[in-house]
Amino acid sequence: MEKVPMTKAGYEMLQAELKRRQSEERPAIIAAIAEARAHGDLSENAEYHAAKEHQSHNEGRVSELEDLLSRAEIIDISKLSGKTIKFGATVKLVDEETDEEKTYQIVGEQEADVKAGKISITSPIARAMIGKSEGDSIEVAAPGGARDYEILSVKFV
């Protein structure tokens, strides 16, 4: 069974989603199915079929969340340190062509959110940064062609 690395915040976010799906969405879907059943003939009952589809989607996500949480390897970033980039590092980069600065934290796949500055450990840019240090240059294959970045700082917060 392969462990899934994630931060404590990411683990808590998945737990909250699981709880919401089990305690709020599941009962609401069951009620919707019961109401649709009361309308009669199920073969031509669009509400019933939509509610059953919603139930299937919700139960699939519940199973996925239970699996992820059971395989979670929570990494406490506050206990990490060092100069090399690894999971949990917050890295400040500068694009060597445009001089645009970007800051990313390397997190687990489930908690990645580029708009919030959190990138997945499996993303091309994170893979290029792993093992590197402040002052190193990296090349990242991007859809528009390869991009070169210089690592300005590495922190664990």
Rank of each mutant, 00 (worst) to 15 (best):
R127E: 15
I33P: 08
T98Y: 10
Q22C: 08
T84L: 10
N58C: 14
K92Q: 04
A46P: 10
R20S: 14
I75Y: 04
A146P: 06
V114C: 01
A34H: 13
D136Y: 05
Y149K: 12
A112I: 03
P124Q: 12
T84Y: 10
M129P: 01
T7R: 03
E2I: 15
F156S: 05
D67T: 14
Q15S: 11
R61D: 00
F156G: 02
T103P: 08
M129R: 00
E111R: 04
I74T: 05
E12Q: 13
R71G: 00
T103Q: 08
F87P: 00
I119M: 12
L69K: 05
S43L: 13
D148H: 13
K8C: 06
E96F: 06
K115L: 06
E97Y: 12
A141T: 09
V91W: 00
A38E: 13
A32L: 06
D67G: 06
S153C: 12
M13R: 15
A116C: 07
A32I: 09
S63Y: 02
G40M: 04
E111I: 10
P124E: 13
S133Y: 10
I151H: 11
V157D: 08
A146L: 02
S78V: 09
I138R: 06
K92Y: 05
I106R: 01
A89S: 07
V107E: 05
Q105M: 15
A146N: 12
S63H: 12
S43P: 04
E2M: 11
V114E: 13
G108W: 02
D41Y: 07
R21I: 09
K118F: 05
I75N: 03
L152Q: 14
D95H: 06
R61F: 01
I121T: 02
G135L: 08
E97M: 08
A31R: 15
D148G: 14
E17I: 09
G135K: 10
Y48F: 15
G88M: 07
G82K: 09
G88L: 00
V154F: 00
D99R: 11
E134P: 06
K102A: 07
K118C: 04
K79L: 15
G117K: 15
V4H: 07
I75R: 11
S70G: 12
L69Q: 06
A89R: 03
K115H: 09
T90Q: 01
K115T: 09
E59L: 12
H39K: 12
E17R: 14
A112P: 01
D67L: 13
